[in-house]
Design a protein around this nucleic acid. Structure first.
Lengths: 335, 335
DNA sequence: GACACTATTGTGAGCGCTAACAAATTGCCC
DNA sequence: GGGCAATTTGTTAGCGCTCACAATAGTGTC
């Protein structure tokens, strides 16, 4: 279409073609109200004919806004963070924002500062943080980047907005389900306790047990991986200390199921297992896994809602997404 | 540190502080060779004192380069694409580029054009495409965005560079392993055939079988999901038409294992199963899965290599990453 | 010590856009 | 139809940077 000559058309070219000033064209593309209908149509026609697209760099130079949101993430290849990212991306693009990403290979204050600098170099308008470590929040408070920050898992403290799934509630749902089935000895394979979610789920487990007058002493800690679930599972298969296990995520549950299967521990006949996350595969484990579903995409969209609010009105806020128990075949009533 | 007054420091502020012209400062931050050591040090000191950071918008306005790579992806929450993205991000950030993402919710020409427009609005310097549909390549040829394009799974055609894992080779490795174990009836659960990888793996399977004088008539098609593997697995459990199944990915393998387990088909005693991808969980399936490993992060890094080459010298190229067979316990010699 | 040549530094313009203000046009009321 | 306000359009400046070129300082040669 448009001639492929040296230069892309700019405002002035459109203006000439439409017989107006460049400022009028600017008004049209920015939906300024005070433009007459006929002028607007003429300008829009010229824009279409020339294939004009606004130059973002020039625009940001003068507005000092980049229309870009930086997403700082770790473990972005995992089901949860990856889908949260997708939710953010969708909401951001819908709102006319670009999404720039920086992935942390190791989570350290240094790496976080680095990534924030990277974003500031790009003059992002805001930063969404999907780094579910307690440490992250501290680093963020310390380094206040001067733009709105929304953190997943945080509960809107001083300068940072927070979007979270109610992890404690999720843990309580899981434990309540097991108690209903008649279980009294309910263990927990927790995620790393320096992860926000890991700590919150363990806390929810403990609270729910104590509220029911049951012991919360059977606590183990994995690293979220199937491998760690497997190792812990081997010990549990020998110890036989619990009739039900609430596991911090689905991957560790997979490892646990594997270890139990090898050791001849039957699930759910001998031991009931509840996971957390509800990944797409969890319904096809052996046996299909009872687990707590989190809507990660919704979480991402909520992040962007908070970001837009912070961008428009300033201030911080918190939003909480409710989890949901999905009952499959890895849990059964105590014989 | 830097005073928190209205304006961020700019080139001119640094220049005044160092007692040089703004152009000399520009030379320092761009590593121009012809700057004397003493001047450079003075300027660097001033930069540090003022906490100066270059304004990206102003820079791109004049250079017409944004130092941004757009990554167009679909299924970005899946293990493969997600890790490819991470590889791209790592290599891009190391090379001083920003990474902007656009996720496709549905793969259609329209959605692809939309996303490309989105990137052009941002004046990205290049586009990496992680959309493993045949359709995508056609859409890209059609819509030549005017910047270098690197596509995952493509083999560097006319205007597009390509980085791929050698899928056919991977399929051949899998089939060869099964033949070695004495299997003659080797079926294939393929991915969707409009996916580049899905088609290539099916082709590799077929080629390898025919080269060995075996029949390639047992071909089924799933949709990559565990659910589809499960459905097909139920049919297979009844039919018992093969002693070995090569499955297009690990998720479908999981579903297949589940279906076999329910139906009392033992793996590997009755049927051997080989997957594709080697996700972190695959070693903890029941039984642990023999599969073909792809190094997705490496693939992503290679994409960025190709991109940097295209940006520097123009032209297109192709790079191929070799897959690797990981033998676990889902395959065994035919009794 | 004059010359040519190179290494280093400075000057001016302009990238494409929006903000602020100025000017022109229109509508409306008496 | 004159006066005033509201609406629509135009003019100017400048965001912070790099490019092209000009000017100056330094180096070596005869």
């Amino acid at each position: 279409m448009a001639n492929s000559s040296a230069r892309l058309p700019r405002l002035e070219d459109v203006a000439q073609r439409a017989g107006v000033s460049h400022q009028t064209v600017s008004r049209v593309i920015n939906n300024h109200p005070n433009v007459s209908k006929s002028t607007r149509e003429r300008v829009e026609a010229a824009i279409a004919e020339l294939g004009y697209r606004r130059n973002t760099a020039a625009r940001s130079l003068v507005t000092r806004r980049s229309q870009t949101i930086g997403v700082l993430g770790s473990e972005l290849s995992q089901y949860g963070p990856a889908n949260t990212l997708l939710g953010v991306e969708q909401a951001a693009r819908d709102a006319g924002y670009f999404v720039s990403i920086a992935a942390l290979r190791t989570v350290s204050r240094e790496a976080i500062f680095d990534a924030i600098q990277h974003f500031l170099d790009q003059s992002v308008d805001g930063i969404v943080v999907i780094v579910p470590h307690v440490e992250t929040l501290l680093a963020l408070e310390e380094q206040a980047p001067g733009v709105p920050v929304v953190a997943v898992g945080a509960s809107g403290s001083g300068s940072v907005s927070g979007a979270m799934v109610d992890q404690r509630r999720g843990a309580e749902l899981a434990v309540a389900h097991l108690i209903e089935q008649g279980h009294h000895r309910i263990g927990h394979i927790a995620g790393p306790q320096d992860w926000i979610d890991g700590a919150a789920r363990a806390e929810g487990w403990s609270t729910a047990l104590r509220a029911a007058g049951l012991a919360d002493d059977l606590l183990m800690e994995g690293d979220w991986s199937a491998g760690s679930g497997y190792e812990i599972g081997r010990e549990l298969a020998t110890a036989r200390s619990a009739t039900a296990i609430f596991v911090g995520n689905d991957q560790m549950s997979l490892g646990l199921l594997r270890a139990f299967n090898e050791a001849g521990v039957r699930v759910p006949e001998d031991v009931s297992v509840v996971g957390f996350d509800d990944q797409p595969e969890s319904g096809y484990f052996t046996p299909p896994l009872t687990t707590v579903r989190q809507d990660f995409e919704e979480l991402g969209r909520r992040c962007m809602d908070l970001m837009l609010a912070a961008l428009a009105k300033g201030g911080t806020a918190t939003t909480v997404v409710e989890p949901e128990l999905v009952i499959r075949r890895s849990t059964a009533a105590l014989a």
